[in-house]
Each structure stands twice: as C-alpha cells, then as structure tokens.
Design a protein around this nucleic acid. Sequence first.
DNA 1: CCCCAGAAGCAAATATCTGTGCTTACGATG
DNA 2: CATCGTAAGCACAGATATTTGCTTCTGGGG
Lengths: 192, 192
Amino acid sequence: MTDKQAPARVRRSPEQVREAVHQAVIDLLSDPDGEDLNIPAIAQRAGVNHTSVYRRWGSLDALLADMVTTRLERDSPLNDTGSLRGDLLAWAQASVASIRTPQGRALVRAVVLSMPNSTQAQDERAQHFRRRMRSIEQIRERATARGEDPPPLEQILDQLIAPFYVRAIFGIDPPDHGYPELLVDRLLGDRN
Amino acid sequence: MTDKQAPARVRRSPEQVREAVHQAVIDLLSDPDGEDLNIPAIAQRAGVNHTSVYRRWGSLDALLADMVTTRLERDSPLNDTGSLRGDLLAWAQASVASIRTPQGRALVRAVVLSMPNSTQAQDERAQHFRRRMRSIEQIRERATARGEDPPPLEQILDQLIAPFYVRAIFGIDPPDHGYPELLVDRLLGDRN
DNA sequence: CCCCAGAAGCAAATATCTGTGCTTACGATG
DNA sequence: CATCGTAAGCACAGATATTTGCTTCTGGGG
C-alpha cells in the first residue's frame, strides 16, 4: 500500500511544493524551446495547481526573487581558504563552473529578471544587488579581519563579477583554461 | 484648419507610430512605477492602437529587438578618432554618460530582455550578442587596418563592456571622475 | 487520539492579453 | 488630380492569465 494506485495526484507539503516550483522555474529558463516564463507554465511543469503559486508568491517577480535567494545561498559554500586570493579564486571557480551549465546560466538570468522593474529611486535596485553580493562582502570582511587590504567592492564588481554576469546573460562561454585565475590575477595584480 | 478641433485621435504615419512605440517602451522601462512591460501598456502609452503593434511586431521580443537595434545605432556616432585608444575611450565615455540617465539604463536592460529566451543551441544568443557589439568590432577592425594590435574581443568584453552592462542592469552608478579612462587604461595597460 | 491552523487542490468567475475581419486615412506614383 | 498599396484604427472574438470561494488534506500541539 505504498501508493494508492496513483490517485489523480497526491498533495504535497508546502516545502515540497516550494522546491518543485523553484526547480520548474530553472527548468523552463534553461531547458526548453522558447516558451516564455509565466505562472501557469511554471505550475504545470511543477505539477502544482497554479492557484497555489498565485497565493503563495503573488507575482512572478516575487517568485523569482525567492528562488534566486534560496538557490544562491544553497549553492555558495563559501568555506574560508585562509587568504583573500584563495577565497576570490574559489568564488570565481565556482561561478565559472556554474555558468558552464544551462541551469547555472538560467539562475543568473533569473537574478536579472528578478530585479525590480520599476523603482524610480533606484536605491531599491542597488539594495537588491547588495543582497546578491553578500558572499563577496563576506570575503572582504574576512580579509579585513585577517589584516589584508581587499580591493573596494566596486573594483571587484568591475573585474570579477561583471564578466561572470555578462557571459552568463549573453551565453558566451568562458575560456577553457585558467579563466578564474586570469580574472583574479587582473583584479589583485594592479591596484589603481 | 490646422487641426480639426481634435477629433478623437489623428492617425499617424508608420514612421511616427514606430518612433512613438519605441519611445513608449523606453518610458515604461525607465520611468514609472513598476507596471510590467506588455504590448497593451506600450500601445496605450504610445497613443497607438494595440492591434497596430501586434500586426507590425507580433511579439514583445521582436519589438524590443527592433527598438534596441534602432536606438543603439542612432546613439553611437562612432567617428574615427585616429587611434584605438581614442576610439575605445570615446565609446566608453558615451556609454558611461548614457547609463547615467534612466533612459540609458532602460536601453541596456532592453538589450538583455530582448535576448532570445530559449535557444538550446545558444549560438543564437551569441549571434545576438555579436550584433549588439558591432560598434566594438568596427573599432577593432579600424585598429587592425591602422596596424595597431587591438585586444581580442573577449578581453574587451571582460574589461570594458561587462562593467558597463552590469552597472546599468543593477543600477550602480559609475564613479564620478575618470571612470572611462580607468577602464580603458586597465584594458590596454597589461596585455596578458 | 483529537483538534486546529495553514496551505494545497478544485471549479468557476473575472480580467487581461492576443489575434482577425473590416473600414478608412495617408502618401507615393503616374 | 485620380488611383492604389500599405498600414492604422475600430469592434469584436478567442485564448490566457489572474483571482475568489470553497473543500480537503497535512502536520503540530494539546
């Protein structure tokens, strides 16, 4: 009596629904053939009633933001390597590896899509960005605590984060060999 | 008899409609309060019947692509300064100036939004990118013709284009002073 | 073991978007 | 100035997306 001869469809717990919906978003963004992202499609792919999605998240933006936050935290281990250079390199390596997969690129695109579309006072967008850059700020804080002098966040943005995002967005594969090292060397090499 | 006592609404020529619709897209992306971008909203803002938009462009993606192409070409003069460095600097200065305005940032975001959402063979996305980078390739070609040795497109992507795009997307203002020079110097300074 | 709060599923109503047939104005051409 | 092709506008007809009222299940505390 493990399953009751597959009755229409079993009801799942909130956490299962949440995970299934998140995964459906990634699947739709990465895998298929150009359908556009909307809540009915997501719900169907997740095998969840669309009303559940509407009631829980309310809008596609909110769903994307929730998914992105969850996944970014889950996928960045961020263990302390003992040096600024090591931490940055680990971050770059993980990031480059991730954007080699369609799912990884989809996650980055979701970050962009989840940015508040409006916001005349663009502070909100900048805050959104800060939240996404939490891990980089932690690397900087640890470096400072060690007595190292990390580059300002803006420079890390320009030389490390930006190439990673833009390549993911435009689907430009990073060079095969030594790319994370190249970016980190450029960043730490000359400190203008 | 210049205007007939403002009858419901005068019909405009195709070119006027096109321009009005393009402008409406930029307005909706930059200015207002978070409404999402869709064809009825664009048509209403442009003062155009929505069927005209559907018939001419067919989809939001196509409209965005058309608008982006038109505006990017119009807004990049690309006069030959006589040197690679001068051309890159001019490009960077124009780009940085443009993303200081909400409309400029909106245009960049539209570039991202107009990227094909699907495309398992991501070649199409890369081609889309190439088309957008036409001006940069022209700068490289001119430099080669002069006997200069421009950096590969990939490096220009990482060090010049990427910071520009990411800042526009996340709404991070560039540093007030000397930012274009900083980026170009970094790019041309060390040639790893 | 029973009860309750919270959330999922279902069905149906509403709102919104997308597409079609037709009419009418614009502007180019002769 | 007359004619004609193109594209805009209008009204209406699907097709989709969003929301609501209600029922039913799940899991945690008494």
